[in-house]
Amino acid sequence: MIVAERKPFAEIAQAVAGYRRVLVVGCGTCVAVCLAGGEKEAGILAAQLDLAGQLAGRQQRFATACVERQCDREFLSELDAAAREHDALLSLACGAGVQFLAERHPTLPVLAGLNTTFIGVNQDVGRWDERCRACTDCLLSLTGGVCPVTMCPKGMVNGPCGGAVEGRCETDPERDCAWTVIHARLSDSDRLANLEVLVPPRDHSRANLPGRQAHAAYLRRYSSHD
């Protein structure tokens, strides 16, 4: 899932300060699960902004809405009518959702209430850890299911750097060196031979440009009519 966190309150308050009627738009998927931008968080933020606006003597009104996913047109369309009643939209989606909402309402200021942080996993209630950098060329089959691009700060793909201390990363003694974990995992699953593969320099050409992909079925159905 995509993990995000709410921006500092002062930054949000400043961003919305100039607008009278603001719609706080939550997103019901990833950011709801990571307790940053779901229906609940939209309600709380609107209540906070409302009180803060009142304290600052501003005439502002904050309403809330929440859609299933802001990264899908189908769900964004539900907001069209409400959006027209407001001077600004404050989106609590990940960066992708904010952009899609902004694209749909080009004449309205669409503001971001969250900082999108990473693609990660749910470790425990209220705790998330990064696991993937969306590098477009997954190495996990080779590296024992441990991502060297993400879990090694240097993204070393051919083995550890010289800085590991007692199996911990040189950047942080609290973290395992990714390569210690990779080695252990491959050893446990009897795949140490994987490590002898000399991984060539990564082809960044795809990741360098804004990603775009189409499903084969989509192409079959639609490209012939283009």
Binding site: G159, P160, G162, A164, V165, H183, S187, L195, L198
Partner: peptide, 19 residues
């Protein structure tokens, strides 16, 4: 190239060394 003889565990270092 650089070598870290005292890094432990050593096995992953040796992989890198061979490469």
């Amino acid at each position: 190239a650089v070598l870290a003889p005292e890094a432990r565990p050593l096995a992953p270092q040796l992989v890198k060394l061979r490469k």
